[in-house]
Design a protein around this nucleic acid. Structure first.
Length: 449
DNA sequence: GTTGAGCGTT
């Protein structure tokens, strides 16, 4: 009698392990689950159809397969009380609870050594430790040195607390008069959480401000960034400190100032071969989309703009924050390159990126399709909320769209992905119900309808 | 006593 296995992970950022099902009834014993994940009380999974989180039925200490069978999905543990979902509707003590909930995970595999680049030559381990201890308990610091004992200008740090690690990764650091960056080392890539911290917020109206969004979403967890593309395009991005909180909100509708917005994954729809690592979303999309270069890369989940300038133009998006000390041309854009630096306190959004390495045309990335009503093609219904009906008359392909948008924006978006060969337009108002016909699309694979 | 993108055991 063969034994079937299903994949179970502690949470979205952990690698799943295979657990055996009961041969007789194809259930998973709670005891089996708890043997690997002490404290777990159930399982949940993301419904591939509507992206909603679904719970697994528990009866007689057995977890029963969903209606469609266990299939090939990854299932995630549910823990009592300290889970994200429990926390997320508590406002004041969110961070405290999240912090607590992270402790055990941190001690397993969440915390990792972090590389600190750009250290001053004079910075020693003591100074490094003292600096990072202001964030939380430091387990280890190293400054790499050459044979003569001279610092190589980089080092490593390890924290005991995962939240501390996230916080440190989410900002830049001024150590001994140098702007330094802290990253997950290349050697650890793939071993660290790959879950995006950023969510896509669709159906936004123009009167929803950064502050409105932050004020609303910070109920669920610390918000590190809010980005609203300009000109207005009916969506925005909200970045959380904790990727699990971001994930927990995906698929939900929320009402902000009377506006029903929809939260979804900021990552592009999976297409099987473009980018396996969803965790790269926030940065991969920040790559230069110009020309025919591949728009996605497989970099670490956090910023890839964290390096220093390469001697040319400074594409610093938050110049008001930057120190001129050290003569360092640091185009460091913490966490969210799209946002032009730290949204809070940086004074305005969207720093201007000079030179060709930019995206100052705005956030013309995949989620735009959602705002355009394109990737919901399976149901040619209406997308309300942003003025006018967005009607996709085709269930699958893109052919004709009534878009309450400037067709130039649509064309620009499609063109940047190398999808557009040509288009025609007709109509007398470029903002309302302009009907365009996409003549040839080079590829539809990304649409994932 | 100079340097300034990178990736850790020596």
């Amino acid at each position: 009698m063969s034994v079937e296995y299903i994949q179970v992970a502690e949470d979205y950022s952990d690698e799943p392990i295979e657990l055996p099902l009961e041969p007789d009834d194809n259930t998973l014993l709670l005891s089996t689950l708890q043997g690997q994940f002490p404290g777990a009380t159930g399982l949940k999974y993301r419904n591939p159809e509507n992206k909603a989180i679904r719970g697994i039925r528990l009866n007689d200490l057995k977890l029963h397969a969903p209606g469609c069978g266990w299939d090939g999905l990854v299932y995630y543990c549910v823990f009592p009380k300290d889970s994200v979902s429990e926390n997320k509707r508590k406002s004041d003590d969110v961070m405290e609870n999240v912090s607590k909930s992270k402790v055990s995970k941190c001690q397993t595999n969440k915390c990792t050594d972090l590389i600190v680049l750009g250290l001053a030559w004079k910075t020693n381990e003591q100074a490094l430790r003292e600096y990072f201890e202001t964030f939380g308990e430091v387990l280890m610091v190293q400054v790499k040195k050459d044979a003569k004992g001279q610092s190589k200008g980089f080092g490593f740090v390890r924290f005991s607390n995962y939240e501390t690690q996230l916080r440190v990764l989410g900002q830049r650091h001024h150590i001994d008069s140098r702007w330094c960056e802290v990253k997950v080392p290349n050697s650890k890539e793939g071993q660290i959480q790959q879950v995006p911290c950023k969510v896509f917020v669709g159906r936004c109206t123009e009167d929803l401000t950064q502050e409105d969004l932050k004020e609303y979403f910070c109920k669920f967890g610390e918000v590190t960034d809010v980005f609203i593309p300009r000109p207005f395009r009916a969506f925005s991005f909200v970045t959380f400190l904790d990727p699990e909180i971001a994930q927990s909100l995906c698929g939900e509708d929320h009402i902000i100032k009377g506006v029903s917005v929809h939260v979804s994954n900021a990552a592009p729809k999976a297409d099987g071969n473009r980018n396996q690592n969803y965790g790269n979303s926030m940065n991969s999309r920040s790559q230069n989309y110009a020309g025919n270069s591949a728009p996605y890369n497989n970099s670490n989940y956090r910023n890839e703009f964290g390096g220093r300038g390469s001697g040319g133009g400074n594409s610093n998006g938050s110049s008001s924050n930057m120190s001129s000390g050290g003569g360092q041309n640091s185009n460091f854009m913490p966490n969210n390159p799209n946002s032009g630096g730290n949204a809070w306190g940086s004074g305005g959004n969207n720093g201007n990126n000079s030179s060709s390495n930019n995206n100052n045309r705005g956030n013309l990335d995949m989620p735009n399709l959602q705002a355009l009503g394109i990737n919901s093609g399976g149901n040619p219904g209406n997308q309300s909320g942003s003025g006018g009906n967005m009607n996709n008359p085709l269930g699958v392909g893109l052919n004709a769209l009534n878009l309450p948008m400037n067709p130039a924006i649509v064309a620009a978006a499609l063109n940047q992905w190398g999808l557009l060969n040509g288009m025609q337009g007709q109509g007398n108002n470029d903002q309302v119900s302009y009907r365009i016909t996409i003549i040839v699309l080079k590829s539809l694979s990304f649409c994932k309808i």
